[in-house]
Amino acid sequence: MASVTLSVNGKSVTRDVDARTLLVEFLREHMRLTGTHVGCDTTQCGCCTVHVNGEAMKSCTLLAVAVDGATITTIEGLAKGQDLHPMQAAFREHHGLQCGFCTPGMIMSAVDMVRRKGTDLDDKTIREELEGNICRCTGYHNIVKAIHYGAEAMGKAGTAAE
């Protein structure tokens, strides 16, 4: 067993875990934060995307013990109380989902995309940057649209730099 301390959505947590524990298992099973999903478990689908020290990573392909001390943001950490994050609001407004399974990963990737590429995103950039997120329902059209408007809204709300 290894002791792992993480700051998750602003709260410090310490748990003794098996060294094999993946970050996504730490979040879902030890912290009961089940918004982060496991789709493929092979680093391809992006449903498990979270932010590690501010950068998007696939939590199914990280050992919890290897990110000991890191600051983690999950989908549960984006909204401020009852107010959805602008990217979440854009996904709702533009119907950027059908079954919703990939949505947490899509949104975490989208927020990271804005951090790296800014708030004025064209369709080509969005589609290229979504390389690591797979959706089996939508055909991506409304996801791309939601990210475009979500990024714009983040710029207006001043959340892009967060």
Binding site: T43, G46, T49, V52, E55, A56, M57, K58, T61, L62, S109, D112, M113, R116, E129, E131, G132, N133
Partner: peptide, 9 residues
Amino acid sequence: IGDPMVRHR
């Protein structure tokens, strides 16, 4: 290489 998340790690 890979995708943005893989490139971060």
